[in-house]
Amino acid sequence: MGLVQGARKRSPWILHFDTGSCNGCDLEVWALLTPRYDVERFGAVNKANPKHADILLITGPVTRKCEDRLRNLYEQTSGPKLVVACGDCASTGAPFHNCYNVCGGVDKVIPVDVYVPGCAARPEALIDGLVLALSLWEKRMEEEG
C-alpha cells in the first residue's frame, strides 16, 4: 500500500444525507460523531460537501422529492466511494415501502455497499457497518491502484 493510500485509509470522510427518514437513524448517526461513540478515532469527519466525502451514510426511505438529490450527491462524490444504508428504512424501505410518495430503499436509486439493520440502527451497529465499509474501501482502492 502506498503512502497516499495509507493516508486516505485513515481519513474516511463522511457525508450524511437524510432521504426521508424519521430522524431516529439520523440522531444515531450524529451520536456517532459525539464523545460517547466518537468515530473520529477512525479518522471519520462529517463533511457536508460531497466532493470531500468518501463514505455516504444514507438514512431513511427515498422519497420522490429526494430521489434526484440523492442521485446527484452520489454522482458528485469522487471515487472510490462507498454507500452505507443506515437502518431498516434505508435498506428496504421497511414500514414505508408501500407508501405513495416513497421509492423504496436506497438501493432502488443508487448502488449500496453496506446495509445496517435496525429501527433505529444502534450506534454500535453503525460503527460495525462503518468498519466493514472501511475494509471494502481498502479493497476497492487496491483494485483501482
Binding site: 420522490r64 422529492k65 414500514p95 408501500n98 405513495y100 410518495n101
Partner: peptide, 22 residues
Amino acid sequence: LVEGKSPAEPLRKGRAGGKGGD
C-alpha cells in the same frame, strides 16, 4: 408533492395506490 412523480391528491378516496405503511 412533486408534480409528475407523486400521485396527485393522494388522500382522496382510492387515490393513493399501494397499501402503504405495511
